[in-house]
Design a protein around this nucleic acid. Structure first.
Length: 421
RNA sequence: GGAGAGGUGGCCGAGUCGGUCGAAGGCAGCCGCCUGCUAAGCGGUUGUGGGGGUAAGACCUCACCCAGGGUUCGAAUCCCUGCCUCUCCGCCA
């Protein structure tokens, strides 16, 4: 959420910045609403003040056994007025806030301008895609014969876009989870195992609601949501809190299943593990001081890259252009891993700096040492990594001509195998 | 699922028959003083958000005692609803 006062005072800048995203800011709506709101607010406060003063006077008179009927009658009408103004104010506030909640974050100045993913900018590459002396297969053509991935049974149990792993596949999934968590905790992230069903406030805090309800799985009664990413519960750990400066930065890592409706992606990645309604992911989340967030963003991205490097998986880092940026993000790097089966790089991690956008929504503040008042922290997060897609990458990059899969060195002690199949 | 208790400031805790309650008292914190140092002691001070004001302060004002409604001239105090916590019974991984 953007700051109302900031928007009010920087209308043109805000408008221009959001235009970079391809977002038309409803400027006139906001300003007239905001002005009306302030006007009503002032009026109510004046009346309240009058009432407070009069009520005190009435109390004094009553104690002295004097008559206060006239004041009481007058205040009755003042109170009625306040009540109706309050209703109007509440409506205006809801509307203003509702509008603010649907405005995306302002892209950071370093974000490359662009309309969509085609204008994202490659920052660097790591590793060299392997040369195959045979035609490399898709992961499902490797996994199904090995009987480690089963799409048909999962479809029977649940439906399309579900999969189940078994045997060495299930163990590989578990090995990846442990390997990633161990890697990140060694780098100073505290391990969290959060709830994966959350309330509306949490979803609003990180920016999924109110705008993206259609992408979420919802539990109707009682009202809850399944998380689309651990970012939601983990960032909301500190919702409505005032942290000490000495506590920052805070680093968390969390393994969770994630649930996404994937509405609007019909026909995309219909086969295979790439796009599932349910998938596992290890997430990295940071809470930092504003002046540190850019450097922390680079480090977080490097931490996610470290996992790919340890696994020997070639990848590239891409800076999302302004038009491809997520709603809450002010800057994002995607990590794209090489998939021989598709002969291209595919997203496996997304590392974002949200600035104070989420902190303002979720009301996460900190107090500086020796200073009065509070400031919003900056929040960041990134996948470290999406486990399903990592499993795909391992299988495709380490496939052998005979249909087996060699287990990367780093995973062997976790899975207890050198080869699958 | 049934029965009951409770939610007050960083923490503990008081709020009488509704009327200077933003809220006693204690602890912790901060600033002085004092003791050669430390501890103890003495005095003062310490919440968040909005609006106005100022060069910046000072200052003025509104709101906030879980949340949302209601009663009233006036509510932390009374009433309703919701959320959360705790205890007992039942059930259960």
């Amino acid at each position: 959420m953007l700051d109302a006062r900031f928007v009010r005072e920087n209308v043109e800048d805000v408008k221009a910045a959001l235009k970079k995203r391809g977002y038309e800011f409803p400027l006139a709506d906001f300003l007239s609403l905001d002005e009306k709101r302030m006007q009503v607010l002032k009026e109510t406060e004046e009346l309240r003040n009058r009432r407070n003063v009069a009520s005190e006077e009435i109390g004094r008179k009553k104690r002295l056994k004097e008559d206060a009927a006239a004041e009481m009658a007058e205040m009755k009408t003042v109170s009625d007025k306040i009540k109706s103004l309050d209703e109007a104010l509440k409506a205006l506030e809801d509307e203003t806030k509702g509008l603010l909640l649907t405005i995306p974050n302002i892209p950071h100045e370093s974000v490359p301008p662009g309309r969509d993913e085609n204008e994202n900018v490659e920052i660097r590459r790591w590793g060299t895609p392997r040369e195959f002396d045979f035609e490399p297969k898709n992961h499902w053509d490797i996994g199904e014969p090995l009987d480690i991935i089963d799409f048909d049974r999962a479809a029977k149990i649940s439906g399309a876009r579900f999969a189940l792993t078994k045997g060495a596949g299930a163990r590989l999934e578990r090995a990846l989870m442990n390997f990633m968590l161990d890697t990140h905790t060694a780098n100073g992230y505290k391990e969290i195992f959060p709830p994966i069903i959350v309330n509306r406030e949490s979803m609003t805090g990180t920016g999924q609601l109110p705008k993206f309800e259609a992408e979420l799985f919802k539990i109707a009664d009682p009202e809850f949501y399944l998380i689309p990413t651990a970012e939601v519960p983990v960032t909301n750990i500190h919702r409505d809190e005032i942290l000490k400066e000495s506590e920052l930065p805070i680093y968390y890592t969390a393994f969770t299943p994630c649930f996404r409706r994937e509405a609007g992606s019909y026909g995309k990645d219909t086969r295979g593990l790439i796009r599932q309604h349910q998938f596992n992911k290890v997430e990295l989340v940071k809470f930092v001081r504003p002046e540190d967030s850019e450097a922390e963003h680079e480090r977080l991205t490097a931490d996610a890259e470290g996992v790919l490097q340890s696994l020997g998986l070639p990848y590239r880092v891409v800076a999302l252009c302004s038009g491809d940026l997520g709603f809450s993000s002010q800057k994002t790097y995607d990590l794209e891993v090489w998939l021989p089966g598709q002969n291209k790089y595919r997203e496996i991690s997304s590392c974002s700096n949200f600035g104070d956008f989420q902190a303002r929504r979720a009301n996460i503040r900190f107090r500086r040492e020796g200073k009065k008042g509070t400031e919003f922290v900056h929040t960041l997060n990134g996948s470290g990594l999406a486990i399903g897609r990592t499993l795909v990458a391992v299988i495709e990059n380490y496939q052998q001509k005979d249909g087996s899969v060699v287990v990367p060195e780093a995973l062997r002690k976790y899975i207890g195998l050198e080869r699958i199949g």
